[in-house]
Write a protein that binds this DNA or RNA. Structure first.
Lengths: 339, 339
DNA sequence: TTGTACGCGTTATCAC
DNA sequence: GTGATAACGCGTACAA
């Protein structure tokens, strides 16, 4: 194990027998360099395995080619997909991406947002933990920021989110068609913009359905108790879970209570997960265009980083509803567009 | 939106009426600074929202509180959990973590490994795409590296992985006890160390079970066709999927072929996913200690970064098998330790 | 094509 | 003991 140090531009210059300025020119294709010199420089770079130090480069040039993304939780498949796509988009555009997870903790989010600034990224994409993002964003943030998925209480950002209301409305109409007379809608908290929009959209389209909202909070055990108590008090025709946690929780609880889907209770979820097409019957769920959301977020950020000065923009992406056996009396499959 | 620039240490110094050296000393707690000056500096930092530029800091001090992690695919829940834990460990230790996904593409992995060097991290943690990692690692990598989960063909790294063989053996013994006479073992490719070890461990403990290995490759459609062809040729008592992709694939295929679990075919998976306890019957699966793996990987890397010179170390973590209805004639639950 | 000042923060050296 | 001055790490950019 040779304890060699990482090569610097000086070592490359020395080895190629040229000045460091020439090496820099070859790397960045700036000034015209004679083919002979260019070849020698490239050879030296190869032999030494030289890679430009991004930090030093940025320090002098002032240009960053770096963006950062903060998500509430990397272990949530939706956010993971978001980050994965975003990373790809960024790299295609020649950018590096710093990925950070807040682990569902607003305090940790605040900490991360602060420490990210130490990297001097050129732009920032955030999926906030909750609506109070503005409280946690460093005061005089001098870089462009795009907020995705969840709408913060206070504006001033470009936004990308899915079309929560109409998608929820489509679910309501489907349940209506399927002959459901009552539906219990379950979400963690109406303080989350997504949950609020989804409930509003559902209620607006519910028509003859007797719709009831139950927010169970973020603490798993308490949430389960609340939901169980509600279901023991009287069973609705259908249950509609508005987010990741409540969907998992409700599905498990329903099974443990010995209720059969859809015979005893129809079941739908806003957050579509992989297993929902694997279980039997499959679970009706809203399919969110996560990849599109990442692409749109990157496009918006990129525009800002290139100096676009237009007023803040909000982009809403259309969802589709995957209808499966969990909400059908006679099991069969089809798909409808939302909105 | 004021287009203010990010504050530098100079602005802080000016505002506090001291030299930049004093500001630096206050921040890093180096030389003794009078309480009065320290207070003024801290106030200025607050007011300006100053955050030290990590890059510039590292450039001068030569010390980088930065590590990087490369995983094959962030959308795989196991890798996402690995990264999430790792990030937490790193931050607790005062380190930043650069997270990078290779999106299951060895070329992309090579690209990422190269570009990561531009950040001059102090350490590297890799879950490689395949065994040929060494081919893709920059030649004279001057920083400590830890490889996790998958064992590369060529050594020279600290390693952390789960105890694949014994865990697979435990599954074999369980199937034996459950009265299975034959088992089809399905994996993507024996070129992956995990798959190899798991198959070997299974075969070694299979005893009276007629065990057969089928590697179906990484291309989804072709894999499905191969597995279907094999199952149509004759049905084993049990099917054991050795990795994430084949578990999903096999479970779906079995359902589409109209086979019922466990009546027609018992089903087990090495990769335990969330939905495996949600479906009915639950799926018997090996539970891998992902979080422990991340913690161990960080501990090893940290040691190296602090200068530990001991020979390369391999750490194997014990798994547990969650036994569920998918492998039982009479459904009931229990858990056994592997190894 | 090259010399060199420069960007930022650290640290060794120096003055009070 | 306290604080300032200035050299320095790396790569870039402009003048020479």
């Amino acid at each position: 194990m040779s304890r060699q140090q990482t090569p610097s531009i000086r070592m490359v210059a020395e080895r190629a027998g040229v000045s460091i300025a020439t090496v820099s020119n070859v790397i960045n294709g700036k000034a015209s360099v004679s083919p002979d010199f260019a070849l020698r420089v490239r050879a030296a770079i190869q032999e030494l395995g030289y890679v430009t130090d991004i930090a030093a480069s940025r320090l002098r040039s002032g240009k960053a080619a770096l963006a950062a993304v903060v998500v509430p939780d990397l272990t949530n498949p939706m956010f993971a997909a978001f980050v994965s796509t975003l990373e790809h988009e960024a790299r295609v555009g020649g950018f590096d991406l710093v990925v950070v997870s807040a682990r569902n903790d607003p305090d940790e989010e605040a900490d991360r947002l602060a420490s990210i600034r130490a990297w001097r990224p050129a732009g920032l994409i955030v999926i906030p933990c909750d609506g109070a993002l503005a409280t946690r964003l460093p005061a005089g943030l001098a870089i462009p920021a795009v907020v995705a998925d969840r709408i913060p209480d206070h504006g001033g950002f470009d936004l990308v989110a899915v079309d929560n209301g109409p998608a929820s409305g489509a679910v309501a109409r489907h349940l209506l068609e399927a002959g459901m007379a009552s539906c219990l809608v379950v979400g963690t908290s109406l303080s989350i913009s997504n949950v609020r929009e989804r409930w509003d959209g559902f209620a607006a389209a519910a028509g003859a359905i007797d719709a009831e909202m139950l927010d169970v909070g973020f603490e798993r055990r308490a949430a389960e108790n609340r939901l169980r108590a509600r279901l023991e008090r009287g069973r609705p025709d259908a249950l509609f879970a508005l987010d990741h946690m409540t969907a998992l929780l409700a599905y498990e609880l329903v099974a443990r209570m010995g209720l059969s889907i859809p015979a005893d209770l129809a079941f739908a979820s806003f957050d579509e997960m992989e297993w929902m097409r694997l279980v039997s019957p499959g679970i009706t769920a809203v399919r969110q265009p996560v990849e599109d959301m990442a692409v749109a977020a990157w496009a918006l950020l990129r525009g800002r980083m290139e100096g676009r000065e237009a007023p803040e923009e909000t982009r809403r992406l259309e969802c589709a509803v995957s209808i499966r056996g969990s909400t059908l009396r006679v099991p069969h499959r089809r798909t409808v567009r939302a909105g």
